[in-house]
Design a protein around this nucleic acid. Structure first.
Length: 439
RNA sequence: GCGACCGUAGCUUAAGGGUAAAGCACCGGACUGUGGCUCCGGGUAUUGGGAGUUCAAAUCUCCCCGGUUGCCCCA
């Protein structure tokens, strides 16, 4: 019986080339967070099931998660998302300086069928602001999102930040008499709007919401693409939620965030959102899933007892982001093939090995990444290996070099050779690396 | 959980009832003082698994497994 060569269904397995791509994206995300003063934190992968039962919704916590009973009889879950853990951590921390601005790169798990943009083990980027109840928090989060997208090379028009308000939606639905139990159904059907054809969607709404007038209200509401449309101001004018969304829309315009668009059909799936909700979508037809989803959750931290702490944040899927970057050809050229070693030392024969190893150690001492031959193959083969690993420089260490102390440094890209003393190599490499592009 | 499509060498594919084949990759050599090029040699396969039809199955049928993708749900 031979062992399977595949990892478990949907589990994450990255080759060094794939890992380099992920590292590049993570670096950009982290830089964007740091630019606004966000700090990094971590929480456990394994959590008590109850943490997610109450807060994420049972669909996610039970049906779509890896959960099990451990040897001590405790019901556990592999986290399907991060926010409840963050809320607990904040609730438990005594001496935080608000506003808390934190970010993390959690590996999360969902028990679902893998498909485009969806796997069972995935990394996302979470960024949250806690302790700010004003819309300035939402605005800053939107600014971070725009910076992320532009730093990765996305241009306006390739993506859109769609936003709406849970408070506004629930207010409209309640005021027209939609019952508590219809509410979840109503959200679900509103969320469908952009996923199917307009006439099919209307049909679905009428089929789901029996009362004709309520169905009309839902159709009219979900079709609002500006908070200022007459129908909406008539239906919700004067309410706190309406004032808020109008004000936020104005703040976004003032800040020049033109990629943000109000869209009342944005709902987001998580149960704990209380205010503005938003998502980043590819505007093209190829990637139909949100790259990022988030919103305001003002009651989450308070559920742990103690004081109420407001929050706004998002989760951004690295996989959906990758698909976006691939779609628009935004991955930097050659990034997956870039080998870490700066220089390759070819060893002519075993007689020079001790000399070469010592030389390599000296280079490493000053921060140069060195790969030295350890195969003992002939020179031609050694150089072929260095070439195929795309290592930038090579040096051959043979009897002549050992005797003279002079070596020939070859740039493998240009083919240019530089003859110099062994002691000069590190200086030359460091100078050139500083001049080269730093990624 | 439901549906559609697809499974042949490490990868991409060919053979559509009659000897499993090619390119790339890989390994060895020409070649122990210089990589990308060239030449020579090597096939690495239970054709995803099992059953059935047939003198004969990679090929036809059925079941299972796996992959991709859509739905549910969502990063």
């Amino acid at each position: 019986m031979t062992l399977s060569r595949k990892p478990l269904k949907g589990m994450r397995e990255l080759t060094p080339g794939e890992k380099r791509i992920e590292d590049y994206v993570i670096k950009r995300l982290r830089e964007a967070g740091v630019a606004y003063g966000f700090e990094e934190y971590e929480t456990p992968v394994l959590e008590p099931l109850e943490l997610f039962l109450a807060k994420s919704g049972s669909e996610l916590a039970v049906k779509q998660s890896y959960n099990f009973t451990d040897k001590g009889g405790r019901k556990l879950i592999m986290r399907p998302e991060l926010t409840p853990s963050l809320a607990r951590m904040v609730a438990a921390s005594g001496e935080l300086i608000y506003p808390v601005k934190w970010m993390s790169f959690p590996v999360c798990y969902r028990y679902e069928r893998p498909q485009r943009g969806r796997v069972r083990e995935f990394v996302q980027f979470n960024l949250d602001i806690l302790g700010v109840s004003g819309l300035e928090a939402e605005l800053e989060v939107f600014l971070v999102l725009r910076r992320i997208m532009s730093s990765l090379g996305a241009s306006r028009g390739q993506y859109v930040i769609r936003y709406s308000s849970r408070k506004l939606a629930s207010g409209i639905l309640e005021s027209c008499g939609i019952t508590e139990e219809e509410m979840a159904q109503a959200y679900a059907v509103i969320d469908k709007k952009d996923k199917i054809k307009p006439d099919e969607w209307e049909e679905l709404v009428r089929k789901t919401i029996k009362d004709e007038r309520n169905a009309d209200t839902i159709i009219k509401f979900a079709s609002c693409s500006d908070p200022d449309v007459p129908w909406l101001s008539e239906a919700a004018g004067g309410s706190e939620a309406f004032d808020e969304i109008v004000r936020f829309s104005g703040m976004l315009k003032d800040a020049g965030i033109l990629e943000a668009q109000f869209d009342a059909s944005v709902v987001r799936g998580l149960d704990y959102y209380t205010g503005i909700v938003f998502e980043v979508m590819d505007t093209g037809g190829k990637n139909r899933r949100a790259i990022c989803g988030g919103g305001r959750y003002d009651n989450l931290v308070g559920m742990f007892g103690g004081q109420k702490v407001t929050g706004v944040g998002f989760g951004l899927g690295l996989l959906t982001l990758d698909l976006f970057l691939e779609t628009y050809d935004l991955m930097p050229e050659g990034i997956s093939g870039k080998h870490p070693a700066d220089i390759f030392l070819a060893v002519y024969s075993d007689g020079e090995r001790a000399f070469a190893v010592n030389f390599a150690e000296k280079l490493r001492d000053v921060g140069i990444s060195v790969e030295i031959d350890i195969t003992g193959k002939n020179l031609s083969k050694q150089l072929k290996i260095a070439d195929r690993k795309s290592i930038g420089y090579i040096v051959v260490i043979g009897p002549e070099e050992v005797v003279s102390g002079r070596i020939t440094l070859r740039n493998m890209t240009s083919g240019i050779e530089t003859e110099c003393e062994v002691s000069e190599v590190s200086g030359i490499l460091i100078d050139r690396n500083l001049c080269g592009e730093a990624n």
